[in-house]
Design a protein around this nucleic acid. Structure first.
Length: 301
DNA sequence: AGCCAGGCAAGTG
DNA sequence: CACTTGCATGGC
């Protein structure tokens, strides 16, 4: 077992672990005591969170990372040296002070920043991110997380840590062995065939979601939409929460409602046009940051 | 009991 | 294109 600390005064701007991993932008982290936002709101505590990286992330084994935030440090324990991985997964290099400064001043955005100061975007491993957002259609956050747990336990590989067994999210090849019925048993409902098709497409080597990284934003979105179960909204989520396209603004039900209330002039009907208008309104290259703050603010108020 | 949840695919006009 | 419909599941 390895352990370590990341000094928070050494990263640019504030950081808040709870709002980052419980914000609904990732379904791949768990609080060790099983509680989440809905139970505790912002409790300001020092709970341990964990995630299990798939083997494809390091190229070797599945790795368990546990992390908690104390006053001025991020303390971690892991099956491997998790320092670099944590900095990447939690986007600790983002200059959050500059980002907040550069975003245009709108009441709802500023309220969200005040309430969840230190929330950062995440950078999830791309395959679990893609599958989890395919599962997210017409589903509540808590249930999406549960579906990912079921998938991991059924098809992922196990890792021992602290005397307990953890399951990583399966790699494409592992998940490609799942039948539609297997996936329905994980509670996916009508999303099961979408996940089956996408896993098999990636496992066959035809298309990989990572290939979108080298494209510009709009091409990247089209690339993602080749996968069954991926439309405009899910494509934007994967680009934003895994591939670092910070200009992506997923238009979900919460954001659409918010646009009607606060930015009616941006409501252009189609996803494409509305997305482009709200992106400009929310700060262009960093609009995804503003989107995620507003989403969290609205979803929990 | 009925409604709804971070939508999407497939089918029309 | 823009618009409609069906879709599994579980919590409230």
């Amino acid at each position: 077992m390895r352990t370590g600390e990341i000094l928070l005064e050494e990263i640019p701007g504030p950081f808040d672990l709870q709002s980052t991993v419980e914000s609904g932008q990732t379904y791949l982290w768990r609080r060790e005591d099983g509680m989440m936002f809905e139970d505790s709101e912002l409790y300001g505590g020092d709970a341990w969170y964990y995630t299990v990286l798939p083997a494809s992330y390091t190229g070797e084994d599945a790795e368990v990372i546990k992390v908690r935030q104390l006053d001025e440090v991020l303390e971690w324990r892991s099956t491997f040296d998790a320092d670099n991985a944590l900095r990447e997964l939690l986007r600790l290099e983002d200059d959050l002070e500059r980002i907040e400064r550069e975003l245009p001043g709108h009441d709802v955005v500023e309220q969200a920043f005040d309430r969840f100061r230190g929330m950062r975007l995440v950078k999830d491993p791309v395959f679990p991110c893609l599958i989890s957002f395919i599962c997210s259609a017409q589903m509540r956050v808590e249930r999406i997380q549960k579906m990912q747990e079921e998938i991991a336990e059924s098809f992922g590989s196990s890792a021992e840590f602290d005397g307990e067994t953890y399951y990583s999210f399966p790699d494409p090849l592992e998940l490609s062995e799942a039948s539609e019925d297997d996936l329905r048993d994980c509670g996916l409902g009508y999303r099961a065939p979408y996940v089956e098709s996408t896993a098999k497409k990636i496992a066959s080597g035809d298309h990989h979601p990572l290939d979108a990284s080298s494209l510009d934003y709009k091409e990247a979105r089209d690339h993602m939409k080749q996968f069954t179960g991926v439309g405009d909204k899910v494509a934007d989520c994967v680009l934003l929460f895994s591939l670092g396209f910070l200009e992506a603004v997923p238009l979900d039900t919460w954001i659409r409602t918010s646009i009607e209330e606060h930015f009616p002039e941006c409501d252009a009907g189609s996803y494409e046009k509305t997305s482009e208008l709200i992106r400009q309104e929310l700060g262009g290259d960093l609009a995804g940051y503003a989107q995620t703050y507003v989403f969290l603010h609205l979803r929990t108020s």
